[in-house]
Simulated assay, not measured.
Amino acid sequence: MTDSMKITNYTQEFITDDNKPFDSAHASTLLELKDGGILAAWFGGAWEKNPDVAIWTAIRDKDGWGQPVKAADVRGIAMWNPVLFRKEDGKIILFYKVGKLISEWVTWYMESEDEGHTFSEPQELVPGDIGGRGPVKNKPIRLSDGTVLAPGSLEGELWDGFVDISKDDCRTWERSDLVPLHRLAITDKGVHNVQVIDRPYDRHYIYGKGIIQPTLWEDRDGKVHMLCRSSSSRIIRSDSEDGGRTWCLAYDTGLPNNNSGIDLVKLKNGDLVLVYNPRENLPGYYKGPRTPLSVALSRDNGETFEIICTLEDQRGDYCYPSVICNDDNKIMITYTWKREKIVYVSFTLED
């Protein structure tokens, strides 16, 4: 499938140096700026969930990465999972979560009119909502009719995926139906995270809590699709024929998943680029190793993927990728490096 695909202009670098103003960094997002620069954001602090965790941003221009800037902070409450997106009016919107527990998340957002140098005062995305509306980790997409879909999920005793739908350029949101799941509880004591191996198999069976953190694309026929992180040792897919309002019963793609975040982007020609850890959960455990971190390409609307590049393959924690592209087939990726730093990668795909 990828015999003629060539990777050129490869760049890989840390966004911050060793003198960064936080010990831990995770859950990055990125956006290409109008002048060709890059805006990145992530959460950073002593460690995940710590009350000092804030949202940080940095800008890459022709001279490299600028110093990180604390963009959002709520004293005494942890912050999580920033997501960047450009609105139709040209403003950049930065979504993020606030809350001590994931089940208590409130989604806030800020806007920038100067390409990420400054942001407006924060506002709640959906006033009064608890649990996390809007994008949970990965970027929204804009459909061919202008509708914005934000990939969301809920994390409590069970995990469920959905999309938030905006018809007015991110001003108001309507939540879709939850993605239907055929969950299998392994014992009568409740839902447990397990490996698929040696269990009854059906492509619609979901073992464990469920699915979270979707990544989205719209195909040439106007259908919308999602791939999801799962507790089932596989990347799980669902499809929508009505613009994301309802979804088919979720099913196994056959791609391994280590219960860690993934992301995908659609290229101008319709090909898909997926960044993920091609590992399953460890036997008897609910997670798997977060290495290697690989890039895969699909030329058949996500039916099959072939790994074309490995970003990291040493022992360590390399995870939570974010990926975007431009019309020149330039692929831009950020990801977590050992929970200490954020790495930026860019390359061009050529046939």
Rank of each mutant, 00 (worst) to 15 (best):
I212D: 00
Y10S: 05
I236W: 00
E121Y: 12
R142K: 15
P151A: 07
T253L: 07
W173T: 10
I236L: 02
F162W: 14
S112L: 09
G222S: 08
T107F: 10
D263Q: 03
Y276N: 02
K20Y: 06
K223D: 13
V74T: 15
S298H: 07
D52E: 09
I165L: 11
T246M: 06
T336S: 13
I186M: 01
S240Y: 09
E121R: 13
E121H: 12
K330D: 11
M110D: 04
I186L: 01
S120P: 11
N281D: 04
D61T: 07
A58M: 11
S153A: 07
P122H: 12
S103R: 15
G254T: 04
S103D: 10
V163N: 09
P140E: 09
R175M: 14
G222A: 06
R133G: 12
W337I: 10
L39G: 08
L101Q: 14
L255V: 08
V343F: 08
L178G: 00
G36V: 10
Y320L: 02
P321W: 02
H204S: 13
F43K: 02
L274P: 00
R299Y: 02
A41N: 07
A150M: 07
P21L: 05
I308P: 00
G208V: 03
D263A: 04
I331M: 05
L255P: 01
T147E: 07
Q314P: 02
E48R: 07
F14P: 09
D239P: 03
K223V: 04
R220M: 10
L84F: 07
E32K: 15
E157H: 11
V136K: 04
D73K: 10
E121I: 03
K70V: 12
D263R: 02
S294R: 05
W337H: 15
I235C: 03
K91R: 15
Y10E: 14
